[in-house]
Design a protein around this nucleic acid. Structure first.
Lengths: 197, 197
DNA sequence: TAAAAGTCTTAAACTAGTTCATTTTTTTTC
DNA sequence: GAAAAAAAATGAACTAGTTTAAGACTTTTA
C-alpha cells in the first residue's frame, strides 16, 4: 500500500518511538485532517479554543502572543516534521492566547480532540508515543527556559543560529527579534556586530 | 491495607490521572526507593548521570546550574507533592549539568531507570500517567519560557508571589533572585519597592 | 511596473538591571 | 549564647537593551 508523501512523513515521525502494523497505520491516518494555510494567513487566533494539534508536512509557521502593548512574542517557529498547536488550550479547552500564522504556504495534518482521545482507546501504543514526544519537548523547553534567563541576547542569537541553521534563513530578522526577546533595532545591531567578528 | 504517609501521598498523586488496583499499588510502591537529604546537602551534582526521578514527600529542594562565571541559575524549587530530577540526563544517560540541593531536611521517593522501564512493562497504564504528567509540565514550561522573555523582573517577582505563595516564604531572597534571573541586590530593591506600593 | 507597505540600518537619548563596595541584620555553629 | 558566617540593604558608577526618529532597501500588490 503506497502512502502519499505527507502521510509517509507523519508515519515515519511516529515510527521513531513506536512500531505500528499496516492496519494501525491506516487507522491512524484515517483520524487525521489535511489542512492548507496560505502565507500570511492564520491557522488559529487568540480567543479561539484550539480544536486540533498539528504536524507540519510543508512550509513554516510562527506561534506567538501579543502582550498588553501589542508587541509580539514568538514562542516557536514550526517547519516540516515539527508538531505545533496550543497544547494548553487543546487540553484545558480554555481560549488560547496564541496566534499561529504561516510565514510560507504550508501544509499540515491535524488531529482533533475527539480523535486524539479515540486514538488512545483504539491504539493504546500511542500513550507511549505521546509520553516520549512530550518528554523530549519538555527537555527542550527546560533548556530553553534557562537560556532565556541566563544568556545575553547576543549569546541567544548565536545559539539559535547554531541550533537551527535551516530555520534562520527562512524567517525575517524582525521575527527572529520577537523570538529572541529583543527589539528589531537591537537585533540589527547584534547581527552586524556578530558578522563583523 | 494501611499505607504509610509518604506512600499515600504518591499514590494519591498518581491517582489523579489513572486508577490502580490494590495489587498495582503494592507493585508500584515496591519499585520505589526511600531517600532522605539533610538541609544544605546534595541529592545530586553536575557531572553525575542521573539514576533516579524523584517525588518529594517532605521538605524543599532547589534545582540549579552554575554558569561559566560560577553564578547559580535556579530552574525550580521542589516541595511536597512535586516531581523533580534531571529528566534530560535520566533519559539520555549523559552527565547532568544540574545540582539538586535540599534547602530544608527533605524526604523523597525515587524510581530508578530500570524500575521506570519495568513499570511500563508491568503496569502499562503508567504510560498514560506519564503522558499526562509530562503534558502538564510542558504547559507550565511553555508559559514560563514566555514569562522569562516578555516580563520585567518586577513583573516576574509579582507573578511568582501570586502563583507560589506557599514557596516564597520558605526560600531566601538570594535563591529567589537566582530563580527570577537577576542579582540579589536588584531583588532586594524590587522587594522593598513592591512592599512600599 | 510603479507605488505602497513592510523591513533593515543607524544614531542619540534613555531605562532596567549589573557591579562593586560598605554596613546592618539574620542565621548557623560550636 | 557568643562568635562566625551568610543574607539583606543601600548607594554610586556602569552596561545591555529600549525608544524614537529618519532614511535606505526590499517585497508585495494593483
Amino acid at each position: 500500500m503506497e502512502l502519499k508523501y505527507s502521510h509517509k512523513l507523519i508515519i515515519d515521525n511516529v515510527g521513531r518511538f513506536i512500531d505500528l502494523t499496516e492496519l494501525e497505520k491506516q487507522k491512524y491516518i484515517s483520524l487525521l485532517a489535511e489542512v492548507k494555510v496560505k502565507k500570511k494567513t492564520f491557522l488559529m487566533q487568540a480567543g479561539e479554543i484550539t480544536k486540533y494539534e498539528y504536524f507540519i508536512t510543508k512550509g513554516c509557521l510562527k506561534v506567538y502572543t501579543l502582550d498588553e502593548d501589542g508587541v509580539p512574542h514568538i514562542s516557536m517557529f514550526a517547519v516540516e516534521d515539527y508538531w505545533t498547536g496550543d497544547m494548553a488550550s487543546f487540553i484545558t479547552k480554555e481560549p488560547s492566547r496564541y496566534f499561529i500564522k504561516a510565514t510560507e504556504d504550508s501544509e499540515l495534518l491535524g488531529i482533533s480532540r475527539a480523535n486524539y482521545e479515540l486514538l488512545f482507546k483504539e491504539i493504546p501504543k500511542f500513550e507511549k508515543f505521546y509520553r516520549i514526544l512530550y518528554q523530549r519537548s519538555l527537555i527542550n523547553y527546560i533548556r530553553r527556559s534557562n537560556y532565556g534567563i541566563s544568556l545575553t541576547a547576543e549569546e541567544r542569537y548565536i545559539e539559535f543560529k547554531r541550533k537551527y541553521p535551516n530555520i534562520i534563513n527562512r524567517i525575517t530578522q524582525k521575527d527572529l527579534a520577537a523570538y529572541i526577546g529583543i527589539t528589531p533595532e537591537f537585533m540589527s545591531k547584534i547581527i552586524s556586530k556578530v558578522n563583523r567578528m
